[in-house]
Design a protein around this nucleic acid. Structure first.
Lengths: 204, 204
DNA sequence: TTTCGGATGTGACACCTGTCATCCGGACCT
DNA sequence: AGGTCCGGATGACAGGTGTCACATCCGAAA
């Protein structure tokens, strides 16, 4: 039974979702069996349509693609996840692989290579943007602790510390301590600057 | 001479660019005559390939889609610009229309409607996401002055005021004045919060 | 049990930021 | 010249923020 590869497509933007579907339907050996726009629907849809490869956009509202990959590995281990993302953030790659993704492609790659990546992943190989892989190794692991991550995430939109403290259920002073520690580790001068750097590196 | 509509595609992400091309090639009455990944190349490519409709992504490095639309209107007035963007920011719509765009589509819209939008734009009609249009009217015009915009842009990544002042060639005190004024107009508590709100509304 | 270490909180201090009133120096008009 | 306007700068002040040392508490290791 070597029929076409059964592909599931997950992207929150309907336009690119449909466009990717059109692109993949040009390939004779690929079969787009499902398209979903919300990460929470992926596992159910993959089971229902018996997907073999899931194309997962990382940036999705609700459940992001990395979390989906983790769910997929737990629920349907034979399904292979291929991450597709706009941002080539080193931390993304690391977390995606830890979550069990079989491949990682940024949206800058030529359209012709996507089908090849799907075939490779389906064949059991790993597909990783080489430039991104080296950058991920060079960048080193995430230097932030759990609490520092949690606090920094809230710093992204620049709200005052009091607000953050309330949302995280911590004392304002404690929040400042975590922030200060994170700023030191990252080498920033601000909590906002620190938050943006951490975000760019996929540490949040 | 009513041949197929000659379409130019501009998007910095090669994957979605190719996918959109695949999607549009499914339509018999559309002809994708050029694909470019950089805003600066659009005008030349449009002239060379005699494009009739240009699909312009707004978020592009270098020259953004809105600036390209302005250039197109000046250089090739008969070419119609259809903006395609990830973010449905009210200010984007306003600026795009002011720059002479004939249509405005967000990437959330169903893929099937894109071809219709292209046909409508080519036929001389305007295409605008209705929900976005009302929001744009309700949000009112950009309340920021030129200088405030310029300073707020630099605030986005949270650098200290001294750095911003150096980059803008202004005194730190003056920068603080502009920032303060912008914060007041927007109703934020921070320059970073103000910058984020302004960015979300497309005021930058 | 005792000890240790991590997580959390507090207080003090210096510095950065946001607000405001004010001032200076051109441009422009009469 | 005089007058007005405006972009830019300055200085003072209050409050927020970053840094640091230290105090608690509690669970895990010894």
């Amino acid at each position: 039974m070597t029929g076409p590869i059964r592909v599931l497509l997950a992207d929150d933007q309907a336009l690119v979702r449909g466009a990717l579907a059109a692109l993949l339907r040009l390939e004779d050996d690929l079969d787009v069996v499902a398209e979903v726009g919300d990460g929470t629907d992926v596992v159910a849809a993959a089971r229902e349509h018996d997907a073999q490869v899931c194309l997962l956009d990382i940036e999705m509202p609700g459940m992001d693609g990395i979390a989906v990959a983790g769910q997929l590995r737990a629920a349907l281990p034979e399904v292979r996840s291929l991450m597709v993302t706009t941002f080539g953030r080193p931390g993304y790659l690391r977390r995606a692989l830890e979550a069990g993704a079989a491949g990682f492609v940024v949206k800058d790659t030529p359209a012709t290579e996507l089908a090849d990546a799907i075939r490779a992943v389906h064949a059991g190989r790993r597909v990783v943007d080489p430039a991104l892989a080296t950058e991920s190794l060079a960048g080193g692991p995430n230097p932030l602790g759990d609490r520092e991550r949690q606090v920094l995430r809230e710093c992204l939109d620049g709200e005052p510390i009091a607000t953050i403290a309330a949302r995280v259920h911590l004392s304002p002073g404690t929040v400042r301590n975590y922030v200060s520690s994170a700023i030191g580790k990252i080498g920033a001068t601000n909590r906002v600057e620190a938050a943006r750097i951490a975000d760019r590196n996929g540490w949040l």
